[in-house]
């Protein structure tokens, strides 16, 4: 396999909690716990999970908007933390992010031209006249036109604002875009327009996406591979076609079964309880208090990643015996 465009290796992000324990030892909220991910050129990886599972934190670490507590982020094989300031600034052009709420992410006091051209200004690219040409070009790429240059964000609808946010993200010709709940605030007919636009742009500019969403229908439609997060850990990752009957982790199975759809009748797994506080995660496997298949070992030992095949990784004790066996037995076990 080729070198991944971006790779996270055992990345952790811990936040110091205000509340310290009895003896004054500081306690930590483990927002992201030992996350390893690879993103290959031109693909869309979907990151799913419930609120507080660490999806957005992971996305922000990949874009290096926040730095990790430990672990490494690689870009085409080189460690981004070793970059010099100059290298970092060049790298930032290649990695962009689109946020959920287009009402909050656009500066309400600035006109669209200013908003979309800001990245060019920051990176001192081109002259003013050339910048305007480039802005018009990307506005047309996202389905708007020059008539929007002098408007303010409040004059636009939610879908149009999200198009502006996307225009701002692509104006520097990035290689990689983190889309953090980029279509979640939109109505379904507008959401479809934006998803189509993102696909077109991906084909046109060979973009790689990390697509963060809690909407399982969107993830299944849009992504090539998925990674399911629970309490700061990736419990399962693999190709999107696993969804259906080939998911292995009990949480991933329950999550996708709970998604109400319009055309199928499936058995839904109702999980008891709620996601625990990430400040006080359960010992052992973080999912074991809600897991129907929990065993004794789950409450005391953290499961490690089990590679079921080249692309399919699951972090669960149920499949532990499979690891290290020959490929045939693995495939048998999957069946």
């Amino acid at each position: 396999m080729s070198t991944p465009l971006l790779e996270l290796d055992k990345v952790q992000k811990h936040y110091k909690s205000n509340r310290s324990s009895f003896l004054g030892k500081p306690s930590y909220v483990k927002a992201v716990n030992s996350v390893s991910l690879r993103l290959f050129e031109g693909e869309t990886l979907g990151l799913v999970g419930e609120s507080g599972s660490g999806k957005s934190t992971t996305g922000q670490i990949i874009a290096q908007l926040i730095s990790q507590t430990s672990g490494t982020v690689f870009y085409k094989g080189s460690d981004v933390t070793t970059f010099t300031n100059k290298q970092m600034k060049a790298w930032r052009k290649k990695v962009q992010i689109v946020f959920q709420d287009p009402y909050a992410s656009l500066n309400p006091k600035k006109k669209i031209e200013w908003i979309v051209s800001e990245p060019l200004v920051i990176h001192r690219i081109r002259t003013k006249v050339e910048r305007r040409e480039k802005v018009v070009e990307v506005l047309e790429d996202v389905g708007l036109d020059a008539s929007y240059l002098h408007r303010y964000p409040h004059e636009l609808s939610g879908g149009q604002r999200q198009r502006v946010a996307i225009a701002t993200a692509i104006i520097l010709n990035p290689e990689f875009i983190v889309i953090d709940e980029g279509v979640s605030a939109l109505d379904v007919s507008v959401q479809a327009q934006i998803l189509n636009l993102l696909k077109q742009l991906q084909n046109k500019y060979k973009l790689t996406y990390l697509f963060i969403s809690h909407d399982l229908n969107v993830i299944q439609y849009f992504c090539d591979r998925i990674a399911v997060m629970y309490l700061g850990e990736i419990v399962e990752q693999g190709r999107t076609d696993l969804i259906g009957s080939n998911l292995k982790h009990p949480y991933a199975q329950a999550l996708f079964s709970a998604n109400p759809t319009v055309d199928e009748n499936k058995t839904q797994i109702v999980l008891g309880g709620e996601v625990p506080n990430s400040g006080t995660p359960p010992a052992g496997c973080p999912f074991h208090p809600r897991c129907a298949k929990a065993m004794e070992t789950c409450s005391s030992f953290k499961p490690s990643d089990v590679h079921l095949n080249q692309t399919h990784v699951v972090r669960c004790h149920l499949y532990k015996t499979i690891e290290g066996n020959s490929k045939d037995t693995i495939e048998e076990a999957i069946r």
Binding site: S189, K199, Y221, F222, G244, D263
Partner: peptide, 19 residues
């Protein structure tokens, strides 16, 4: 239009219907 624009696994690879 509303029902057709719901994203779904079976519609992968083809553009979604939009209103």
């Amino acid at each position: 239009g509303l029902i057709q624009s719901i994203p779904d696994y079976k519609k992968r690879g083809e553009p979604l219907h939009t209103i």
